[in-house]
Write a protein that binds this DNA or RNA. Structure first.
Length: 418
RNA sequence: GUGGGCGUAGCUCAGUUGGUUAGAGCGCCAGGUUGUGGUCCUGGAGGUCGGGGGUUCGAGACCCCUCGUCCACCCCA
């Protein structure tokens, strides 16, 4: 038993999974940069207050934050998500609008870990600030949908809803409070506690006894402003125009309290556990203002790497990329030939690896096989004596002797032929 | 945070009602082949049975605590 293990909710991502993570981020970058989003790298920790602006009833903030005092006495927190940091950056740098950015990286939440739920978890996402256009809402949603397609996912389900403007949200909260209070006796005790804190979140309950009452709850669209309704209709029409299928879900609330108007969530129907939500987002008009900036509309989404990859597993798509070096050098004389040859090959743009500690030729050949190199260069005493190299094609087993001085040309030729 | 299942080699797991030096497959290393991998054969290394305490003549098996993991709730990605 090793003395040290990773902390709960954290883990080492090793190859080949690590290569898959990188490929995931590469695909994402390609997808969103093709739509004009630029890369932003916000810090992993910020002033605690930055995150507190996400909302007092947001559990992510109130219960799950990794906050601490640094040596200078500053009260800071590891970011639980990245939208707040991006909005803070927007206020700090005042970029020209619309400001469209994307990010990738780890976030931290102190939760009880489960599969698909970690204390350090990676997300990729985009934020678009400074435009109120419903077509932008649709673009952001379309981008996420396209990314899933790019990964090869088919069983992805999109739910959309609107939460109305800030005032609407509050008004609807009151309506819900009144409604649920009237049925309080039939609600689970958990839901009663939630009701006191944040009536909207009761809609999210998965507990069986609550379902009947929830299904009878008044819908939000009946209590939101005409302009918010219009905005939402425009978003839906824009999605229709792009042939993006969605389901209207008037109970889709989402956990971050900053959402206004358009909200959406992607779930994987290939997953059956509690972690089917693989991504989501929405408008957060008001967040920039809460962070001390001028009132600025914003919209974005975030996707969880782990869960999306879990969905990929379930659909048997987006496998980890195969890694292979082109050449493996086997040296049974003293290792220096392999040392120098590898260097020479690498200088010429050919990837090369070798074995160490002068192991037997059999062991070195085994390493060559494992490296997935298509060509092995073998150097023994005969080759050294004649200034030659044995070039072996690993696939066919065909091999021939080449002059050492011609090695680069011969290798390139062998690799081209494959 | 609440409730429950599970923790045996690097990995996947077996271990009869508690009974000698704890097993298999895969992987790893070496040999068979004194210059050749992917197949095959043989051998080897690798385990304080998650940790601590207890019951017992005797615990991997039973009890308690603890840690980890998984599941549900919560929350969310």
């Amino acid at each position: 038993m090793p003395e040290f293990k990773t902390s709960p909710g954290t883990r080492d991502i090793l190859s080949p999974q690590s290569g898959r993570w990188r490929a995931f981020q590469d695909v994402f970058a390609r997808t969103v940069e093709a739509a004009g989003y630029s890369y932003i790298i916000p810090p992993m920790f910020e002033d605690l207050d930055v995150f507190l602006r996400l909302g007092e009833t947001t559990e992510v903030v109130t219960k799950e934050m990794y906050d601490f005092h640094d040596k200078g006495g500053r009260h800071v927190a590891l970011r639980p998500e990245q939208t707040a940091g991006v909005c803070r950056a927007y206020v700090e740098h005042q970029p020209v609008t619309p400001w469209k950015v994307w990010y990738a990286g780890p976030n931290f939440r102190y939760e009880k870990p489960q599969q698909g739920r970690y204390r350090q978890f990676d997300q990729v996402g985009v934020e678009a600030l400074g435009a109120d256009d419903p077509l932008l809402d649709a673009e952001v949603i379309a981008l996420a949908a396209k990314f899933y397609v790019d990964l090869g996912l088919k069983k992805v389900h999109l739910s959309v809803n609107t939460l109305g403007d800030a005032g609407d949200r509050e008004k609807y909260s009151q309506i819900l409070l009144k409604y649920f209070s009237a049925h309080e006796r039939d609600l689970t005790s958990d839901s009663r506690a939630t009701l006191a804190r944040n009536p909207l979140r009761v809609l999210d309950s998965k507990r069986e006894p609550d379902q009947k009452i929830i299904s009878g709850a008044p819908a939000i669209r009946e209590s939101i402003s005409a302009s918010a309704n219009q905005h939402f209709d425009d978003v839906l029409r824009a999605l229709d125009a792009l042939n993006i299928s969605y389901e209207l879900n008037n109970r889709l609330v989402r956990g971050l309290d900053y959402y206004r108007r358009t909200t959406f969530e992607f779930t994987s129907t290939a997953l059956d556990a509690a972690h089917t939500a693989i991504g989501g987002g929405g408008r957060y008009d008001g967040l920039v203002e809460a962070l001390g900036g001028k009132a600025t509309p914003g919209i974005g989404f975030a996707l969880g790497l782990d869960r999306t990859l879990l969905a990929c597993d379930a659909e048997n798509t987006f496998a980890a990329p195969k890694t292979a070096v082109q050449i493996f050098v086997v040296d049974t004389v003293d290792g220096r030939h392999a040392h120098e040859l590898c260097h020479l090959l690498r200088q010429n743009g050919v990837s090369a690896d070798r074995a160490y500690d002068l192991r037997s030729i059999k062991a070195q050949m085994k390493s060559a096989d494992r490296s997935a190199a298509s060509v092995a260069l073998i150097i023994g005493s005969d080759e050294v004596e004649n200034s030659t190299i044995m070039l072996r094609k690993m696939g066919s087993g065909e091999q021939y002797s080449i002059a050492r001085k011609d090695v680069i040309g011969e290798v390139l030729q062998a690799l081209n032929v494959k």
